[in-house]
Structure formats: C-alpha cells, structure tokens
Nucleic acid binder design. Sequence first.
DNA 1: CCCTCGTTTGGAATTGTTCTAAATTGGCTT
DNA 2: AAGCCAATTTAGAACAATTCCAAACGAGGG
Lengths: 153, 153
Amino acid sequence: MNSAAPDVLAQRLADSGLRSTPQRELVYAVLLAKRDHPTADQVFTRVKEELPGISLATVYNCLETLVSCGLVKQVNLERESTRYCPNLHPHAHFHDEITGATHDIDLPPTIFSKLRAVLPPGYDAEGVEITFRGSAKLPAPSTSRESRTATAH
Amino acid sequence: MNSAAPDVLAQRLADSGLRSTPQRELVYAVLLAKRDHPTADQVFTRVKEELPGISLATVYNCLETLVSCGLVKQVNLERESTRYCPNLHPHAHFHDEITGATHDIDLPPTIFSKLRAVLPPGYDAEGVEITFRGSAKLPAPSTSRESRTATAH
DNA sequence: CCCTCGTTTGGAATTGTTCTAAATTGGCTT
DNA sequence: AAGCCAATTTAGAACAATTCCAAACGAGGG
Ligand SMILES: [Mn+2]
Ligand SMILES: [Mn+2]
Ligand SMILES: [Zn+2]
Ligand SMILES: [Zn+2]
C-alpha cells in the first residue's frame, strides 16, 4: 500500500524508546491511506477490517503515540470528536460545513512570516493554524478506489 | 458596568422573536466584562454571584441563544470545553500553552484577502480562523480590578 | 525457559454537553 | 385583576467522547 511509511514509523518509535507493534503500524497505515481526517472511531472501524480483535482503547493509545512521535497531528475544528491528520507539511484546513468534510489546503511558505507580522511584541508563536469554513464545489471526488482529499507528498 | 450593551442585546433578541431575560442579560454582561474566553462552567460561576439561583442548563441555553443571535462566537481551540468570545471584530486567537489563556489578536483587514488567495478554485470560504499557539510574555496583567485580555472596542 | 516490562484489552469512570419533563414567568386578553 | 398561553428556566437523567484502570498478553534478554 505505502512503501517507506512503516520504516519511518519504526524509526520514530525507536527514537522514543517505543516498540513497533502491528496495532501502531496499522493505525498509521490507515491514516496515510485515506487522508480525510478521520475520528478515532472511524480509524477504529477501518483498522478492525484487518485486525478484528483490536480495541478502541488501543486505537486511542496508538493515535496518542503517533501524535507524541510527531507523525500525526490532532485537528479540532469544532467541539466533537478529535480528528487526526498525518500531513506534516504546513497546511490549512478547509471545513465544508455542508458535507462535514475537512480538506487540506497547501500553504505558501511566505504566509507564516506574514502572519507573524500581525502579532504584537511579547507574543511568541510556535505554531499557527488556519481554518476556512464554507462549502467546496469540487470536481466530483471520482469513484476511484481512493478519493484523495489531501496533498500528494 | 457596560452602557449600551443591554440595549444591543434586547434589540438582537427582539429581532429573533426572543425575549430579554435577566439570565440572558447577565450571561452576556459577564462575557463582556471579562473577555478571557471563559467556558460555560466559568460563566456559570461568574453569573451565580449575581443570580445565585441560575442553573447550568440555563447558562448553556443563554450562551446558545447569544451565539444564534450573532453576538457571541464559540471558540474551540482544542478538545475540551467550548469557550465563548463576544468580540465581533475580525480577530485571531493566541493560545498560551503555558498559562492556558487565550488572547484576542487584532487582525489587519487585508489579511483576509491574502488568505483567500491561497484557496484553490472551487473552495468558497465564508469564514477564516487563525490560531497562534505559543507563549506570551506580557507586561504583567496588573492586579487591577479587571485584567483586560482583549481588544478595547 | 522464565522474568520483566511495555503493550493491549474490556470495562468502568470521567467530562462536557444535551435532552426531558415539570415548574415558572411575562405578556395579552378579557 | 384574573386567566391564558407560550417562552423560558430548572434539576436531573441521558449521552458521547475520551481517559483511566487493573488484568492479561507478549517479545526479548538473561
Ligand atoms: Mn461542521
Ligand atoms: Mn492548551
Ligand atoms: Zn490536515
Ligand atoms: Zn476572541
């Protein structure tokens, strides 16, 4: 499915003194396979297809592990389930209020310096998040096996 | 405390065919008085000082009413309690990861056009949210009766 | 092999929010 | 002034997402 991904994961885990497990690998693979910012529960459903015995608690554990390794980011656009995003490039999110879908939007690198410029002195920002809300009329997600919501790496 | 505020509220409520009540007025007054993006529970605590009999459900109801009137916005920077912001000016949020405080940051109006420029065709954004995360070393909030976190209108 | 410790697991507990059904309130009509 | 009606408030139950817990598991290392 995805080639270098497991290696990257194994490496990051090792760096943190953690083990590579089938559960962790699969959760990560599922996130990479369909980048639609799934909830923990959606990840659970997808992962169960390949590993029917996995528990929801483990999915939460694995997601937390991936976040702490820096391979995945949590996305909270509204109060409801946290969503998970494996896209490490600087990007914004577009939340389609009609469909509920969340799309990645590539950001030109210059946007960050422009944004930091609005910060008054005394404020030191480590990160910036940009979220658009609205509706997207996209060229029809095409019923091909994997609808690509996100940035191609 | 605040002069024109109740009138604005009464007006907006009337526009929506809703009644002005002591609970709604007080919840709104509390939001305007200390613009630190309180949670529903914090609003509850503050409101109880003046209206000890109020219930948490009512605070939730009033906040929802204010949001639907367009006088208050919900802020969800992370998964945890929703916070409430009565600042209607276009502004960003700075979330201090150390103190947990959330500050309003005034935005130059031009930022919106710049941001819309990054949106690919097909995306139609009605709103944009910008959130900074980091730490702020501010000139000491001064122990005066009302620490002003936000924009002075 | 067997110990140890990191990991997984199911279920209970917690947290924030919404729902529900009954009591209260306030404006209108008579 | 009394009665009526619908909006509002209220307490507590219900809910959904997540975290906690204590037991079971499993991969190495001695
Ligand atoms: Mn939405
Ligand atoms: Mn925080
Ligand atoms: Zn993303
Ligand atoms: Zn604000």
